[in-house]
Structures are given as structure tokens and as C-alpha cells.
């Protein structure tokens, strides 16, 4: 007989409260995680959405990409050696629309590649978030350091850098705006890192992301919040299961007295834990995925299925550990003591 299920059926209120706590805490964690990922995307989607590979910047830039200036010969040498490699530059700046309203953007230019949109001179491809500002294909922009006009050729999804939409421009336009003929960075897709010229320093994608000002600090704070929530949730699980077990000590004692195995009592507790946790996690994961789709476009929220499943697994494992630790008392409970305690 499945006494675990029979207890849930009879004591719906108690299990509903416990389930609600698991649901609320996990939902909060999913939402915070979604916001953390969203902010991370908002800060560095341009880099994060690139395939895995190596980033190179000049050694004397001291790991600050916008101080990096690549020597033309060195750049050509790397690009010749690594066929799919590209050189590119990123600079924060402004675009002025017809009403002279300034739009903060991250200008990006690169050598020919399939990784970034191809842009002709006098054109600009913008991140789609700028559509929300009423900008349309064919609109024109000016820039204080640029003599001509930039016409919007297209929009591209999820292309942000340093919390600003990316504006892809032609290299010639970039050189005019920033009075430089040198690129800042080289990106070489693929796991193999070729021989690095002495004047360059190589970074993995993760290492390069951490050189972006504010990215590391922002992510560290957000990840700390997420993991702190996970730890707190684990403790909450353990405390609630502990309290539930303490209330049931006399019952466990009587069940032991009539001959129920300790392992059967653990099975009963694990079944209940699994039922509550899985149901609550399914609800909170589902709700957070709905929120992921319905969140306002201005809200940096990004929660993938993978992250949801990973966090759910962590929650389940923590719930299991918490319940098991709190259930260690079951092993210690003496039937005799429970009998002498009075009516259950």
C-alpha cells in the first residue's frame, strides 16, 4: 500500500503549504536567473552568441579591448593563417536621428564574415530593439564625427553590447568616425588555438567576456544572488522537511513498532519529497517559461530550457539531500519512545 500517497491525499493542506514554498522559492530563483541571463545577454550578446573560439588583442592593451590596436601586418598574418578568423572593432557612440535625438549604440565593424551582417558604406544594421524607438528601415542617422548620413538597411535580433544596441557599420565609415585604420580584436572560431604572434594575447570566449568592463562584476553579483537563493532554498527544504518529520516522529515510531522497515519509512518520505518537488518545479518552470515569452521587450529577461532544467535538477538534488538529512532522525526514532509518548 502506498502510504506516502495516502498521507498526501488526507493532509492536502500541509503538503500544499510545503509545495507552495518550493514553488515560490524555485519561481523566484528562475526569475532572478532569467534576469541575470537577460542582463548578461544585454551586456554581451554580441560576443556570447559567437561560436566558441579564441579572441586576440594586442598585449600592450592590458586586457582592455578598447585600448587594443592591432598592427596591420600582424592582423593579416593571423587572418591568413586562420581562414575563418575575422578582425573587428567595437566602440560606444551615438547616432542622431532626424529630430536630433541621440541614440546610444555600440558601433561594430569587421572584416568580411558570415558572423556579422555585411554592411556597405553609408549603411547601418541595427539591433531590433531600436525598432521599439520607432526607427524603421530607410531612416537616416548622423554622427558628430561622420560627414555623411547612415541609412538603416536592416535590423538584427539580439545584438547588444554593454547594454546598448549594436550598430553594424562599414569599416571605412568606422575609420572616419574614430580616425583609426587599426582594428581592435581578432576572433578565430574553433577550439584549436593556433600559434599566437608574440605581440598578441589570446583569450577564450569566457576569459574575453570577463575583460569587458562591468560584465564580470555584474555577473558575479547576479550569480551570487542566484546561488544564494539556491542555497537558501536548500536550507528551507531541509527545515520544512525536518519540521514535518519532527511532527511525524510518533507516527514513525508506531509504524516501526508494528514492523515497518526503516527503509520503507525513508521511501515514504522520498516519495512525498519527489512528488511535491517535481510538481512545484514543473509549475514554476512552466510559469517562468511563460514569463520568458510574455516579458516586456524592454526587460532584459532570458531563460533557456537548459538553464531551467539545470536549476530544476539542482533544486531536486538539494530537496533530496535536505529531506534525507532531516530524515536521519527516522533512523534514530525508538518505537518504544513513540508508544510511551501518547496518542498520535
Amino acid at each position: 500500500m502506498n502510504i506516502a500517497w495516502k498521507e498526501i491525499r488526507k493532509n492536502k493542506g500541509r503538503f500544499l503549504i510545503l509545495g507552495s514554498i518550493v514553488f515560490l522559492v524555485s519561481l523566484l530563483t528562475f526569475i532572478i536567473s532569467g534576469l541575470a541571463n537577460g542582463l548578461s545577454q544585454d551586456n554581451a550578446a554580441l560576443i556570447k552568441d559567437l561560436p566558441n573560439g579564441q579572441f586576440y588583442m594586442s598585449k600592450d592593451a592590458e586586457e582592455t579591448y578598447n585600448l587594443s590596436k592591432l598592427d596591420k601586418d600582424t592582423q593579416d598574418k593571423v587572418l591568413t593563417k586562420q581562414k575563418d578568423a575575422i578582425a573587428f572593432s567595437i566602440q560606444m557612440g551615438f547616432l542622431n536621428d532626424r529630430t536630433d535625438k541621440q541614440h546610444s549604440v555600440a558601433f561594430v565593424t569587421s572584416t568580411d564574415t558570415k558572423l556579422f551582417p555585411i554592411v556597405n558604406k553609408g549603411e547601418v544594421v541595427l539591433d531590433r530593439s531600436m525598432e521599439d524607438d520607432g526607427i524603421e528601415i530607410g531612416d537616416t542617422f548622423t554622427n558628430n564625427q561622420y560627414s555623411g548620413e547612415l541609412i538603416v538597411k536592416d535590423f538584427i535580433d539580439q545584438s547588444k553590447f554593454s547594454h546598448a544596441p549594436v550598430a553594424y557599420i562599414n569599416t571605412e565609415d568606422y575609420q572616419e568616425m574614430y580616425r583609426t585604420s587599426k582594428m581592435q580584436l581578432i576572433f578565430a572560431p574553433g577550439e584549436d588555438s593556433a600559434e599566437v604572434p608574440a605581440e598578441l594575447k589570446a583569450f577564450s570566449k569566457e576569459a574575453f567576456l570577463n575583460t569587458i568592463p562591468s560584465y564580470k562584476a555584474e555577473q558575479m553579483s547576479l550569480n551570487m544572488i542566484v546561488w544564494f537563493l539556491v542555497v537558501i532554498s536548500g536550507m528551507l527544504f531541509a527545515i520544512f522537511f525536518y519540521m514535518m518529520n519532527v511532527q511525524k516522529m510518533a507516527l514513525y515510531g508506531i509504524l516501526k513498532a508494528i514492523g515497518l522497515k526503516t527503509s520503507a519509512l525513508f521511501k515514504m518520505m522520498w516519495t512525498q519529497m519527489a512528488f511535491i518537488t517535481i510538481l512545484s518545479l514543473l509549475l514554476s518552470a512552466g510559469l517562468s517559461q511563460i514569463f520568458n515569452r510574455l516579458a516586456p521587450s524592454g526587460m532584459p529577461f532570458h531563460l533557456t530550457f537548459e538553464t531551467t532544467i539545470q536549476l530544476s535538477l539542482v533544486f531536486f538534488i538539494i530537496g533530496f539531500i535536505g529531506a534525507t538529512l532531516s530524515g536521519m532522525q527516522i533512523k534514530k526514532v525508538e518505537p518504544l519512545q513513540a508508544i510511551q509518548q501518547g496518542e498520535i
Binding site: I3, K6, E7, R9, K10, N11, A250, L251, I254, L255, A257, I258, G259, L260, A338, I339, G342, E343, I344
Partner: peptide, 16 residues
């Protein structure tokens, strides 16, 4: 569990 039966001072029935 198989050969003994118990009746205590209180019934100690499983409440659910």
C-alpha cells in the same frame, strides 16, 4: 511484524 500483535494504552492508529 509477522508473529506478534500489539495493542497499546492508546490506539496509535495511523491518522491518514
Amino acid at each position: 511484524s509477522s508473529q506478534f500483535g500489539f495493542v497499546f494504552q492508546f490506539a496509535h492508529l495511523v491518522p491518514f
